[in-house]
């Protein structure tokens, strides 16, 4: 007994380690990833390519964790990402989720999101940029650093611009502190392409380039309902029909910013809704009155009457096509 048994047990366990079976299913369940992916499916409409990629990343990290159990060494995968897409396609929303997803998968330790733009990274005089960038990086460590409108970092027309210094520090950190933080760059497609053209080092250090597609009319309707439910509003059946007409009309107009335009349209509908209730203030109101947006609230939009977005003087909107950018 005793020693020889222990030795046998050790050999057996080593064999099991060398060529053992491992339960991927159990590991998957233990990590709660399904829950995160389900919320993602539920709360983000459309965005199929993005969801697929997140699934792939989740699978990779899970397998990586199992490989570690067998002491199969491999380098930590780089998860720096670049989100491109038109305005209002959900880049920031997905980035916020990314922190939580990566934390569940055990890739980052804290999973918080630090959102910055050029102003937070680039200084105004010599020697100002490096400490500023480093401070932001230190804050983001253990989580996700989200650089919005990242193409502003590099201004090719001004060769004395300090943006290049900031990019250099970022590159170094992205390479040397891969375990400590994930950098996500976001911006419009064409401008980001230009940015990467002039910073090839940046392009090669980012493994995942995700392009956010525009939403279809049906998806926008689904998003509307989700937004309204969040704010405890609902549409009457006629209002829903009116909105279904509104969405394609608005999509055809200039400066359409996907979900953001829809959110603004809803905000204005709420305004009219409140105004309508206020005008009829002699009558008693029910709970459902306070909740329900009627067709009239939506049909009052200038999109129906004049074919210009709200918030722009009609003439200006028609002539210059400027205005409701958001």
């Amino acid at each position: 007994m005793g020693k020889s048994d222990d030795a046998v047990a050790a050999i057996v366990s080593r064999h099991a380690q060398e060529d053992g079976v491992v339960d991927l299913e159990a590991e998957f369940r233990a990590s709660n990833i399904q829950e995160v992916l389900d919320t993602l499916d539920r709360e983000l409409i459309g965005l199929m390519p993005i969801k697929t990629r997140i699934r792939e990343i989740a699978a990779l990290l899970l397998v990586e964790r199992l490989r570690k159990q067998f002491a199969l060494t491999s380098e930590t995968p780089t998860l720096h990402m670049c989100f491109t897409g038109n305005p209002g396609t959900g880049k920031t929303t997905v980035a916020m989720r990314m922190g939580e997803i990566l934390k569940r998968l055990g890739y980052v330790r804290e999973g918080h999101l630090v959102t910055v733009t050029r102003d937070d990274l680039v200084g105004q005089y010599i020697g100002h940029t490096a400490p500023k960038t480093k401070e932001v990086i230190k804050k983001a460590m253990g989580g996700v650093l989200f650089i919005d409108e990242a193409y502003y970092l590099y201004k090719p027309e001004n060769e004395r611009d300090y943006g290049a210094e900031s990019i250099e520090i970022l590159l170094q950190i992205m390479e040397n502190h891969r375990d400590d933080l994930v950098v996500i760059l976001a911006g419009y497609k064409d401008k980001m392409d230009q940015f990467f053209m002039s910073n090839p080092g940046m392009r090669s250090r980012i493994a995942h380039h995700l392009d956010f597609p525009d939403y279809s009319a049906d998806e926008l309707m689904a998003i509307t309902k989700l937004m309204l439910a969040d704010q405890s509003y609902r549409l009457s059946p006629e209002a829903e029909r009116a909105l279904a007409e509104y969405v394609p009309l608005r999509m055809a107009l200039p400066h359409f910013a996907n979900a953001r335009s829809i959110r603004n349209a809803l905000d204005r509908a709420r305004l009219r809704h409140a105004n309508r209730l206020f005008a009829a203030r002699s009558q008693a109101l029910t709970r459902s009155d306070l909740m329900t947006i009627e067709a009239a609230d939506i049909r009052a939009s200038r999109v129906f009457r004049e074919g210009t977005p709200d918030g722009v003087p009609a003439a200006v909107g028609l002539v210059t096509g400027q205005g409701d950018l958001r």
Binding site: E110, M141, H177
Partner: peptide
Amino acid sequence: FGMPMFDLKDPAGILME
């Protein structure tokens, strides 16, 4: 050495410093 470090969430940044 450098700036005081407020609002940090993770020790990695301080260890770097």
